[in-house]
Write a protein that binds this DNA or RNA. Structure first.
Lengths: 225, 225
DNA sequence: CTCGGTTTGTTCTCGCGTTCACAAACTCCT
DNA sequence: AGGAGTTTGTGAACGCGAGAACAAACCGAG
């Protein structure tokens, strides 16, 4: 986890409170649970209900929400749609985030096709790949373009978020260029530790690491049986 | 995080110590870093070097490793291959883990093709999908088979780990059947909270949640600029 | 208007994880 | 053999997050 810069001193008065990292990581879960509840026609929900839908403790949920403000009504609960909007606004998904994906292998294609991005305020503005053979292709309705176009695309669309879905060897180079062209948040699917400046946020998703963690616990279960 | 059952009392004498969850989550990272170092011809490394390769603090690394035992030499460092083997053994990836993947959409295909599984002790023994139209296909050299075959496959191959890459609506049902047939570890890519018994471990990977977390920080950066 | 029931927001305590700092242990050089 | 220089392993301090518990606030009935 990157150390947050302690420049929380004198920003805009209303968004000054900083939210614990653990809470930030759960807000999207609450958002999804609220959307589900809303689609089921629930207009009001208690912290108990919402917590159950999100798979967390109700005390934790209430504490998390308290960092955003007082959006509930005691004795009643939370207005589903109102709370949903407040969380979405706090996360920042009420606005549109242009995203560029680099590396159109199996995973890159899966990401490009993933409808969950678009519906949550993320718009894939470009798919890039180093392999010229792929530049003919169209994936998810988007042309695959040469990696060289990165700079122009980032500039033209004011892209702040980049996704790396390349092989491990290429990842650091891709990250370096992304940073050089002004991208400040990277979601990395390549199995490598990325080296980036402090101002740049990196989140890593590693499929095989998750499996290995499961294997460890599985081994323990087998050993104690 | 599921609460660990406190049956640590009288298990096999050598693997009795329990390793903190946070450490377990980092062991695969160390494993990868060690493999990289080994491939580069490094036969010995200090905690400082290894920590740099893994992207963590060297004190944290040493403490993590101390839970496994005393595998280093003071004044010298760690033997790369030896330490690598010890971590692999502790995680459990020296043995072979049969894995079944359910849901062969874009993501399922990406997972089936991911070479990082096989090279780390995971073997995909079956690809299942509910859609009959896909049962003709062969993905990554493996036949796609009907979801009904799950029970037989789990029994025949003694599968303990299942991967869910279906749409959100199908995920809970798939999980229920996996559990019913004896699977005790689930890696869930579907954007839903799964309900499973306590003995079953679930890990969740959610692509859009990671992006939303980045968006939150990105918004903060923009606000304080 | 008051009172009982309900649910939020918050305070407090506890445990886990991170980090510092240092003693113990090893190597190498003289 | 002895001492200087490294590097590990760990004890201790610190900070953050989880959960319990409760007071404050709201609704509705009488």
């Amino acid at each position: 986890m990157e150390t947050r810069h302690a420049v929380t001193a004198r920003t805009s008065p209303e968004s000054a409170r900083d939210i614990p990292e653990a809470t930030v990581a759960r807000l999207p879960i609450y958002l999804r649970a609220l959307t589900t509840l809303s689609e089921q026609g629930t207009s009001t929900c208690s912290s108990e209900e919402l917590a159950a839908a999100a798979g967390v403790n109700s005390a934790k949920l209430r504490k998390d929400l308290s960092y955003l403000g007082s959006y509930g009504t005691r004795g009643v609960g939370y207005d589903t749609d109102y709370l949903r909007y407040q969380i979405a606004r706090e996360i920042g998904v009420t606005q549109d985030w242009p995203v560029v994906i680099v590396g159109i292998g199996n995973l890159g294609q899966a990401l490009a096709n993933y409808s969950g991005f678009r519906s949550r305020g993320f718009r894939v503005v470009a798919l890039l790949d180093a392999d010229p053979a792929r530049h003919e292709e169209v994936v998810a309705g988007i042309d695959v373009r040469p990696f060289d176009h990165l700079e122009k695309i980032v500039r033209d669309h004011a892209v702040a978020i980049g996704v790396i879905a390349t092989p491990a060897l290429a990842a650091q180079d891709v990250a370096d260029r992304m940073v050089a062209f002004g991208i400040t948040s990277i979601l990395n699917f390549a199995p490598t530790v990325l080296n980036v400046p402090d101002q740049v946020d990196v989140r890593k998703v590693d499929l095989s690491i998750e499996l290995q963690i499961l294997a460890y616990h599985e081994q323990r279960k087998a050993a104690s049986a």
